[in-house]
Design a protein around this nucleic acid. Structure first.
Lengths: 103, 103
DNA sequence: ACAACGATTAGCTATCTGGCTAATAGTTCT
DNA sequence: AGAACTATTAGCCAGATAGCTAATCGTTGT
């Protein structure tokens, strides 16, 4: 049972904020998240890499950072890897921190 | 005056996002913003520096980064410098970007 | 005028980051 | 089995970042 619109956001730690904001610091990583978002939230590593000018291994590493921050999840499918956007995580962690600044 | 779309906040460019997310990437800078927030949004450089373990010049540099991102504004007052939190900027830039991920 | 104060700038260093190419691992196809 | 395909890991390197101390600048107080 998953609660999508939970009123209470379960513990978002300082480490979570650290990982997520560090991941968002780089334009390519933000771009990857956007691309994922507008392609339905699910793409293979190759599809993602194809959309960027940098070499594939560089994209792979960006994906690792995003994964480490919990912003994407990866699933092996045959010889491909499918990356899935975790929108909830993005909203929860940024929201939890930004909320402090609301009036 | 450039107006891109009716119900949009005034132009938030990619450069804005770049500066703001880069500034938010470091824990000390996020902490500075929080301290400012909960001390009424206005503090002198010394008051801020006192709350951090690192040397004063290091804090000064963090303040420069925050200022460059438009997240704080500085005003000279005698021999002190008063830093003021720009909450609107924080909300606008992060909001403009995060909005893409809403359902 | 001069000392004390508040803060920044200059300059150095170690570490982190992000880019690349080459090598490797696992999967699928013939 | 072996070639082709998808993706990652390993390893290198240049540039950015963040920490420090010392020097400097402008303001205030004696």
């Amino acid at each position: 049972m998953k609660r999508r619109r939970a009123a209470r956001r379960p513990g978002v730690t300082a480490d979570d904020a650290e990982a997520v904001f560090a991941a968002l610091a780089h334009a390519s990583r933000r771009q990857i998240l956007l691309v994922l978002r507008f392609r339905g939230g699910e793409m293979t590593a190759g599809d993602i890499a194809d959309r960027f000018a940098c070499a594939w291994p560089t994209t792979t590493r960006h994906l690792r950072v995003l994964e480490g921050a919990g912003l994407v999840r990866v699933e092996k499918r045959g010889r491909e890897r499918v990356y899935r956007l975790n929108r909830e995580r993005l909203a929860d962690v940024t929201g939890a921190w930004l909320r402090w600044f609301r009036r």
